[in-house]
Simulated assay, not measured.
Amino acid sequence: MQIHVLASGSTGNAIFVDMDDTKILIDAGISARRIKQSLDAIGAKIEDIDGVLVTHEHRDHVNGLPTLLKKYRLPAYACPDTWQAMYCRAELPDDCCLSLADSLDIGKIKVEPFSISHDAADPVGFRLYAGGNKVSIATDLGFVTPTVKGALALSDVLVLESNHDIDMLKNGKYPWPLKKRIMSNRGHLANTDAGWTLARLARKAHTHVFLAHLSRENNRPELAETTVADILTNQGCKLGQDITLHLTYPEQISGLSRNTK
């Protein structure tokens, strides 16, 4: 099993997952050229992708879709309202734009989307199952609902938003309406929220967690890691044994290639 966060943040998002020889791309918010280069760097081929899953229509999650679908004719799945709200929908080949179901099989991966709270048309996270492993992705969410908590439970690998530090955001240069939007229930998850979510989550013996969608303006990778780690440690979690934390970056690949069973 391989999970590689090719890019994460407000400048673009893309995650590559390979489970049981089925290859899926979650979001395509960076250019198709950069996706190809990133996949080449980890020994994968863009032509071998079995499907693209789209979490929501914001540009930092779909900017690469037009070239990706037109050039490589990959099947892409999104909620109907997401397709309708997408700025580039008219540029996309109709036969590549497929509707998400409550559950679907792509190759050997079972995909189960779940609703999240974000200011988009119909945003979702994803649970991916194959070979006895579970990978869950939840970024761009204002708060963790019971539905989200249940969806993330007992994951082998989890990609979870840790967008901002509250104090940095409040004291930063963003205008107040934008700060209010980020801190709202339909905005983004703070470092402390990510930490408490993990601390209260039903977990397997060992979980790998990627802290994702870190703000360049209102966060620092080491601050996100320290904040989450402190909460987990204070709640009795043994880092490196119960949970291993991985950081993600806007222009750097973060990956895990191993059997996590």
Rank of each mutant, 00 (worst) to 15 (best):
F143V: 09
W83Y: 11
T139F: 03
R33A: 05
D94N: 13
H213T: 09
D122I: 00
L92N: 01
Q241V: 00
A120R: 02
L98E: 04
E47S: 13
P93A: 08
K23N: 05
V159C: 06
K179A: 07
L189V: 03
S155Y: 01
D94S: 14
A199G: 08
D122H: 08
E251R: 01
L141Y: 05
N185H: 08
M168N: 12
P146Y: 02
D230H: 12
W196Q: 04
Q37P: 00
V144G: 06
S103E: 15
N13H: 07
T139A: 05
D105G: 10
R216C: 06
S215P: 12
G9R: 10
L201T: 04
D193S: 15
C88V: 01
A101W: 08
T260C: 10
L25C: 07
P80T: 03
K108E: 15
D40N: 13
T67Q: 04
A205R: 07
N185Q: 12
G131L: 02
K261S: 14
H206M: 02
R127H: 05
L158V: 02
K173W: 13
W196E: 05
G150K: 10
S136N: 03
T11Q: 06
F126V: 00
L128I: 00
C97S: 08
D167Q: 13
L239R: 05
D122V: 00
L141E: 01
K238T: 03
A151W: 02
R127K: 10
H246M: 10
E217I: 12
I182T: 00
G51Y: 10
P221D: 08
L256F: 06
D167C: 06
P66C: 09
V124S: 00
G150T: 00
I24R: 12
N219W: 05
A76V: 00
V209T: 03
D122L: 07
A7S: 15
A120V: 11
L68Q: 02
G132Q: 02
A120L: 04
G51Q: 10
R181N: 12
T67P: 01
G142E: 05
G12V: 02
V148I: 15
Y72V: 08
K70E: 06
G9F: 11
V209K: 12
L53V: 06
A205H: 06
H208G: 07
L160V: 11
S254K: 09
T233R: 15
A121S: 15
A121R: 04
S254I: 06
R216F: 04
S257N: 10
S184I: 12
P75C: 09
E161I: 02
Q2V: 04
H164K: 02
Q37A: 03
R258A: 15
M168K: 14
T147F: 03
A41M: 07
I15A: 11
A85S: 15
T55M: 14
D20K: 11
A153R: 01
H188N: 13
D21P: 05
N63T: 10
N259C: 09
R181G: 09
K108T: 14
R33H: 04
M19A: 14
S215Y: 11
V5Q: 13
V111H: 09
G150N: 09
D230T: 14
V228K: 00
R73M: 13
G240I: 00
M183I: 14
R73A: 11
K23F: 06
S38A: 14
D242L: 00
C237Y: 05
S99Q: 14
G187R: 06
M86K: 03
T197S: 07
A44C: 14
A32P: 05
W83G: 08
R89S: 07
